[in-house]
Write a protein that binds this DNA or RNA. Sequence first.
DNA 1: TTGTAGGCGTTATCAG
DNA 2: CTGATAACGCCTACAA
Lengths: 339, 339
Amino acid sequence: MNEKVTIYDIAKKLKTSAATVSRALNNNPNISESMRQLVFETAKKMNYKQNKLALALKSGKSNNVGVIVPYIDRSFFSSIIRGIEDELYPRGYRVIISQTHETEQKEIDTINMLLNAQVDGILMSVSKFTATNSHFKRVLDNNIPLVFFDRRYKMKGVSSVVIDDFQGGFDATNHLIKLGCKHIAHISGDMSLEIYRNRYEGYKTAIEDAGLEFNPTYVIESKNDIEAGQTAVDFLLNLETPPNAIFSSSDYVALGVIQKLKERGFNVPQDFCVVGFSNEPFTKFMELTMSTVDQCTVEMGKMAALVFLEQVKNSKIKIEKKVQLSPQLIIRGSSSKKL
Amino acid sequence: MNEKVTIYDIAKKLKTSAATVSRALNNNPNISESMRQLVFETAKKMNYKQNKLALALKSGKSNNVGVIVPYIDRSFFSSIIRGIEDELYPRGYRVIISQTHETEQKEIDTINMLLNAQVDGILMSVSKFTATNSHFKRVLDNNIPLVFFDRRYKMKGVSSVVIDDFQGGFDATNHLIKLGCKHIAHISGDMSLEIYRNRYEGYKTAIEDAGLEFNPTYVIESKNDIEAGQTAVDFLLNLETPPNAIFSSSDYVALGVIQKLKERGFNVPQDFCVVGFSNEPFTKFMELTMSTVDQCTVEMGKMAALVFLEQVKNSKIKIEKKVQLSPQLIIRGSSSKKL
DNA sequence: TTGTAGGCGTTATCAG
DNA sequence: CTGATAACGCCTACAA
């Protein structure tokens, strides 16, 4: 029933021109106050809605930003997106979400679609299996801001927001050392990924700084799931000198670790301390709550949004901003013994 | 460096017209094969990207759909969104996300923005505090499909996808009855919300169908958090005839229930059975895993997307589709005793 | 202060 | 088969 009403319709009813209506609506100074009032009233009366599409075509700015993540239903990513949306919505930007399902092909497709859709910026976390970067270059060539968060692809001209994984690994390990643990093992994710290498480096540095012996057999590279944690424990406990603490770069692995430890009769944290990484929601709902490292996800999202906004503001200057947020060690039941 | 290339640029280079280029690119039959080839090649060579904005303005279809949820970082909503995106992306739709933070004002604002942005449809879960419906009417007046999922506002002409909350409540309670529990309490969320009333009705019906006595003092209305569960247990255990099982319409409340029960020396599930609702991720990571009712969130998202697509296809007919998905009772540790 | 005209990039219509 | 032209809705010189 409600056919779309345009500024022409308003102009016709007011026996004036579309230009006048446009000026009135945009609070252009060169217009009489009476006319402005009149236009506003009839616009409201006729239920006029500005067509942002036309505006976008004209101005070249869509006021849409694309956000690309592997999966939106991982708490880590959804809370980053929350931060982004919270920050960008009040500034009039709409957030377009896409998932890559961790495949490079979908990442490429998605970027092409977003480019076609004339987004004003792309904020993304790189898919695990991305090996090429020409699609990122294309974004840059089109002169639209590209901001990586968490997982980045190292290249020139791109800003990124990550947490200080080294610091996180260091803090977690150091906490275990302070608790009196002398034999601390580390279960890492895929070391070909920067984030896991950095957490590992933090671990190693903490060990060495404390004058403890670094033992390479205490370092296990594994998948990020519960089973991997269980398997790792079985392996570690069979060593000649088994560890009495574990820092895991994944909360899921840490969960498997705790399960297996209990199964084998250990008391956590009295006999054995465990610290995970990510502050997944479940870590605080467990019977024995888990110590972990919080990655400030909402904060990370907000920061990514702010970096984007800054680039938009200074569109002439090419900024390459690297923001590194400090992770937050959260001490809970799995590593709280007092010695 | 890479200035935007349009079909005019291609036409110029090929000394032909934009119309021809457009036809070639769109595989219009009225064009010579040689021309088509030539256009495709040079388009690729010049790195041409179709401007979807212009197309959208021309066609009136933006190929964007708006999705509105209270908060994107709740696992319930993010996995619905995942379902929506998975379904819509391959069909060329992009998904615009916004959060209402459970306020009606932001819901209204968001709908206005999305309308201005000429979205082709709106899929949403109504904010808890929404009391009016004129913004929904506006969507309908603009003739764009509106699909509610989970929380709906009862009104004519709007499709919705919900789960059968009655069934969920019934199944959960019936499961407890079959386990031999005779005194089953129910902790409900805000009864002014349809979903909680329905779960309650399911509970009540199961009790009565089994020939057990329905006891109104066993029904508690509370907030959806851990503390509320703890408080409720304290209250229930002080009754003359305390219950020996609880069906909670929230997993968080159920978690508080289990915590408090253990604190007071009960063994779950031997002395006391508990079933929650929602299948929050943490329920399967707890030491004592929790029985709950899964709401098929990804499925719900997919279904909402399909209902939208159907409405787009038959745009002349006004469809008002009510889809009700069956919830899935998941039996885990907190209610698994054999009698 | 107001109106006219042109253009943003496409596609559709109508001639040729 | 191909080319000009109008139109989608808006903004903005430029002219009046």
